[in-house]
Nucleic acid binder design. Structure first.
Length: 106
DNA sequence: AGTAAGGCGGGCA
DNA sequence: GTGCCCGCCTTAC
C-alpha cells in the first residue's frame, strides 16, 4: 500500500456517522490536495470497506462529490444511497439534502 | 516503460 | 440549471 492510500484511508475512517465528506476534502486532509480523483480509486480498490470488514471499517459511502451528488460506489449506487439514508441523511434526486451542514472537515 | 482510464474538481460559456 | 474541457494522481494492462 502506498503512503497516499494509507493517508486516505485514515482520513475516511475518521468520518463520524451522520456526517459526510467529499473527495476533495479527503484529498486535502490527506496532504494531497489535487488527488481527488485518485481518492476515488483508492476507496474502490481497498478491501476494508464498511460492509465486509469487522475491524478496519472504512466508511467509503460517506465520501461524496463536492456538489452534493453521491458519486460512485464499488458495491453499487443503490447500496451507497441506502447506507447513507440508514445513517440519517436525506437523499433526494441523487443528492444529499443540506450536505454543506453535514460536512466533515477535520 | 508507455498509455489509458477512473467513485473528481474547477473554470467558463 | 446544463455541458465542455483541461488538470490532477494513481492504478491496470
Amino acid at each position: 500500500m502506498t503512503k497516499f492510500a494509507q493517508q486516505v484511508l485514515a482520513v475516511v475512517s475518521a468520518i463520524p456517522i451522520g456526517q459526510v465528506s467529499t473527495y476533495k476534502i479527503v484529498a486535502d486532509l490527506s496532504g494531497y490536495p489535487r488527488s481527488a480523483r485518485a481518492v476515488g480509486l483508492v476507496l474502490k480498490k481497498n478491501k476494508f470497506h464498511f460492509l465486509s470488514n469487522g475491524r478496519k471499517k472504512i466508511p467509503c459511502h460517506r465520501v461524496i462529490k463536492s456538489n452534493g451528488q453521491i458519486g460512485g460506489f464499488s458495491l453499487g449506487f443503490e447500496k451507497k444511497k441506502q447506507l447513507l439514508h440508514f445513517e440519517g441523511l436525506i437523499i433526494k434526486n441523487n443528492r444529499i439534502n443540506n450536505f454543506e451542514q453535514k460536512l466533515y472537515y477535520k
